[in-house]
C-alpha cells in the first residue's frame, strides 16, 4: 500500500465535516403558508352570482386570514361579455349572450391591511357608475401576506 491511499479518505472526512458544519446554527423560521379568503359567512358580499346595480353603491365585505401577517388586498371588476369565465366556483351563473363591450365597467384598486394582522374583515364601499354596460362581470379578490404568498378567488356577478 502506498502512502497516497490515506489521502482520499482524509479528504472525504474533511468534506463530510464541511458539509455537515453548514447545516448547524440557528434555522430561520420559514413561512410557507398562503393567506386565505373567506366569503362563507352571512354578511359576505358579493358572492357567486350576486347582482350589483348601476349608479348605486355597494359594500364589499370579506374576511382574510394568515398564519403570520396579512399584506394587502386587491379588488378587480372586469366584464365577461366574451364568456372567458375563470370563476373558482363550480356553480356557473346563467350567462347572457356574448356581446361586444362599448363602455364596460373596469375597477382595479388595492387596499392596505393594518400591519400585524392575522385576520381582518375588509369592508369597502364601491360605487358603480350609471353610464356603463350592464351584463356579466367578474369580481376578483386577491390577498397577499407579508411574505408574498398570495391567494385569489374569482366570482361571476351581474351588473344590472
Amino acid at each position: 500500500m502506498t502512502k497516497y491511499n490515506r489521502f482520499p479518505i482524509s479528504i472525504f472526512l474533511l468534506l463530510a465535516l464541511f458539509i455537515s458544519g453548514c447545516e448547524k446554527g440557528k434555522e430561520d423560521i420559514i413561512d410557507d403558508v398562503p393567506p386565505e379568503i373567506h366569503i362563507d359567512f352571512g354578511e359576505a358580499f358579493p358572492i357567486q352570482c350576486s347582482t350589483l346595480k348601476k349608479g348605486e353603491k355597494f359594500a364589499f365585505r370579506a374576511r382574510f386570514s394568515d398564519n403570520t401577517e396579512l399584506g394587502t388586498y386587491s379588488l378587480d371588476i372586469h366584464h365577461n361579455f366574451d364568456h372567458h369565465s375563470h370563476t373558482t366556483e363550480f356553480e356557473e351563473c346563467n350567462l347572457q349572450p356574448k356581446k361586444d363591450p362599448l363602455k364596460p365597467f373596469l375597477f382595479i384598486r388595492s387596499y392596505d391591511i393594518p400591519k400585524g394582522q392575522k385576520s381582518y374583515e375588509a369592508v369597502q364601499e364601491i360605487e358603480i357608475p350609471s353610464d356603463i354596460d350592464a351584463g356579466d362581470y367578474h369580481f376578483m379578490i386577491m390577498v397577499t401576506d407579508a411574505t408574498g404568498w398570495s391567494k385569489m378567488i374569482g366570482l361571476s356577478i351581474k351588473i344590472e
Binding site: G71, Y73, S74, D76, I108, S110, M140, M142, T144, T147
Partner: peptide, 11 residues
C-alpha cells in the same frame, strides 16, 4: 412582495 399593481394588468 405583498403589494399589488394597479396600472397594468388586473391588480
Amino acid at each position: 412582495t405583498p403589494r399589488h399593481d394597479h396600472f397594468y394588468g388586473s391588480g
